[in-house]
Design a binder for these strands. Structure first.
Lengths: 209, 209
DNA sequence: TAACCTACCAAACACTTGTTAGGGAAGCTT
DNA sequence: AAGCTTCCCTAACAAGTGTTTGGTAGGTTA
């Protein structure tokens, strides 16, 4: 990261069209997801977009800004869906089911962003600019863990498990899917959610009838 | 990557002591795991090791070699354990249990290497040098998926699930643990394995007795 | 004491990185 | 026709990158 400018916050390109920005952000997200943020040079992004490196700076004021915009756009949409689910006043089991299903829908729509989030969020959240990642993660934990706890109290979830372990288990099983999921595969997001929920809730072992 | 030399394959430092190499590789693995391979500069590794960047080249002939050695050492040990389990001739359920337990032990011992593997293996396996990662992954899939299929035939695992989905489910739940696991935590690897297996096999929902 | 080996340092190298400044072609507005 | 706006290119910059070369302090061996 050269040219460390003294906080002169240049105003971004107000003239650039939002559709083009979206387009470029989508290809950038794709490259970030495939190669990793740090391994991705702005020249690679420009290549994928059919332009030269410097031209990107007409639309964005830094590589970091692109990443920022990709992640925050994703999180905004994600919480839009989550908040709707959480406000519905469902029971614990139904809440978990709805959250998982919603998550797979988000993976379907924001595969690249989710993959980036998964790979980079831990290192990024140390940076002040990306502190909202930590905030989101806390909110996330509160929602999921809270629902699990409610479920244990209501005797719909097992009480003999470490609840935090259970939380990480459920959370991870859902979100790692972004690493292999490809839209247009043989299973719809809803079908994947159904099977995942079946495994998480009832296990993969065959029970004697 | 500057100084593109014409394939003059310099012989590595035969004089360097193996213990010191191990020591340096351990600190390198720690930095790689924390920051990501590409984001890690050789100067950061040298810093963590208390020496200067150039001095690393007395022990290793490139940054890539360090990564290579870290990953291949881990995989060697991993397959040592796996092969023992697979050769034991256990039933499907017992094999899965043993594989999961063994995996958590490996995570305990090679936390950094596992984390690196998780983050970088997909991009690395394209490079010829790291093609053994793909080989390992195939062997991995064969072992796990095969066991699951045997289990379905033997009626110890459910047959109403997409078997490949199940495979990825089990695989991922185990290995993502490396991203949050810290040795010396409140649960031993064996205890984590026990609870994970309980969740994967029987689910988290409370069943009516 | 002399020669040698081990493990490091100091300083540079060639190249890549994110970013910027100035320019210009096409299209729209006046 | 003149001016303006949008979107890109050309060409460079300064800092950071992995790596090499030559040197050297301290221990071991002869």
């Amino acid at each position: 990261m050269p040219t460390n400018k003294p906080t002169v916050k240049k105003k971004p390109q107000v003239t650039a069209s939002p559709e083009r920005r979206r387009e470029l952000l989508d290809t950038a997200a794709e490259v970030f997801a495939a190669q990793g943020y740090n391994a991705t040079t702005v020249r690679k992004i420009a290549d994928a977009a059919g332009m030269l490196a410097g031209s990107l700076y007409y639309h964005f004021d830094s590589k970091e800004s692109m990443l920022d915009e990709i992640l925050s756009a994703f999180l905004t949409e994600l919480w839009d869906g989550y908040d709707t689910v959480l406000a519905a006043g469902l029971g614990p089991r139904e809440t978990i089911e709805a959250l998982v299903t919603e998550s797979f829908r988000e993976i379907d729509r924001h595969r690249a962003a989710v993959a980036i989030y998964q790979k980079e969020s831990r290192t990024l959240s140390a940076q002040p600019r990306f502190h909202y990642l930590s905030d989101s993660q806390q909110k996330f934990e509160k929602a999921w863990l809270g629902t699990l706890e409610r479920g244990v109290e209501a005797k719909v979830f097992r009480s003999d498990l470490d609840i935090r372990l259970t939380y990480r288990f459920v959370r991870d099983t859902v979100w790692v899917a972004a690493s292999w999921y490809r839209p247009g595969g043989q299973h719809s997001p809803e079908e994947i959610a159904r099977q995942y929920l079946s495994m998480v809730l009832d296990g993969i072992a065959l029970r004697p009838t």
